[in-house]
Write a protein that binds this DNA or RNA. Structure first.
Lengths: 214, 214
DNA sequence: TAGATTGTTAATCGATTAACAATC
DNA sequence: TAGATTGTTAATCGATTAACAATC
């Protein structure tokens, strides 16, 4: 605990959701236990890496037996904060914002969507999947009256920095940013970017490779 | 070239779109040249890394001068295939598919969206941002009649594997997958996943960190 | 108990950073 | 030419893989 605790490498954290996903599937298939070897084959990683990753958190297995799927799943879920009752707002009620509001996956990861915000008067007051769209002018007052952990930003990039600064100042603890720009802040806020076009360009590079290298 | 060419590490490729983005901004600001040192400060990486990264492709700079922004921008663009005239289809005309069709960023990265596909009869024939929605049954015939490089999959996960197999068999070279599942194939296809919920969970973990560790 | 498989240490590999000679 | 900055080699750091003793 505290700053002296061995910091878990970012690269390990990024792998946890994938473990969580595979364990969910095993659970659904009613598989009770799994060894690092068996899991490594399914996930196409090394058994060593799996054991190393889990051991950053103390090790959840049992020698000679393997891992209890349900226990492992719920423990990784806890590490990722699925049970923390986090809350979120979605800023931007365009197609992307609506896609997110309609997706049940956000709820499944433990997030409750409290509200959406937009600056288009003609849709303010509407509901998307029973989440109300508020005027973006009400951002600060809403955040001050409700505990909002995360702001999901799904608006065009030209307004992103301004809106981000506002929600950060209002006390939000994390931002999930879908816009093609990076948010600058000197406050201690967790920021996670989903740069769709970056993925598209990486894919574009790979297409090229297929053509020219093999 | 060929399989003997020094393979560029994946981690370098993933950084290229970010360079590209920053260089676009410099271009807009009418900045003609930049040194690795100056760029490193802007992007918050080391100058060493920038020079190493660029040198995987032969080095585009000039000693004592730095890098010509326009040249560097266009060269990285070329590496990423922005000028290859790639084509794409979007499978799924729900909110996410529409968000993608409406976003001009896909076009800016050199992709032309040829068509959208959906299985909902009531929207087939509609146009989204002047892209027509076809019946998903026409997937194969469309791909056989048009050169389709990439399929962007934006449908619920239960149909993803089936649709992916179909487009791969029909000859698509790459897939951008937005569904919360991984596509299996033994064909040589480039697959890039955008797992939004994984990002959300990583963010969730970081929220936790803020609270308990500092 | 014997067999299996973890937790963990040690070895390897690869990526990042530092340093500096080459050169514009 | 002198100064600046790259391209590139060498040093460091960190992450992955291998190995194996501990133990269920």
């Amino acid at each position: 605990m505290g700053i002296y605790e061995k910091q878990v490498p970012d690269v390990v954290i990024k792998r946890l959701p994938r473990y969580y996903r595979y364990l969910s599937e095993l659970l659904k298939m009613d598989i009770k236990r799994i060894s690092s070897g068996a899991l490594s084959q399914k996930m196409n990683v090394t058994a060593s890496q799996i054991r190393q990753d889990f051991n950053y958190f103390g090790g959840f297995g049992q020698q000679g037996y393997g891992y209890n799927v349900e226990y492992l799943h719920s423990t990784i879920g806890e590490i990722l904060g699925v049970k923390n009752g986090n809350t979120a707002i979605i800023i931007g009620a365009g197609n992307l914002g609506r896609a997110l509001a309609n997706h049940d996956s956000i709820g499944k990861r433990g997030f409750t969507i409290l509200a959406m915000f937009d600056n288009n008067p003609s849709i303010i007051g509407e509901e998307v999947n029973s989440t109300k769209i508020y005027d973006v002018e009400e951002l600060e007052s809403f955040i001050s009256e409700n505990r909002v952990d995360v702001a999901i930003i799904a608006i065009p990039k030209n307004h992103v920095q301004e809106v981000a600064t506002r929600v950060i100042n209002a006390g939000v603890k994390g931002i999930l940013n879908f816009a093609y720009t990076e948010i600058k802040t000197d406050k201690k806020v967790a920021i996670e970017n989903v740069h769709i076009t970056d993925s598209l360009m990486t894919l574009s590079y790979k297409l090229n490779l297929e053509r020219t290298e093999y």
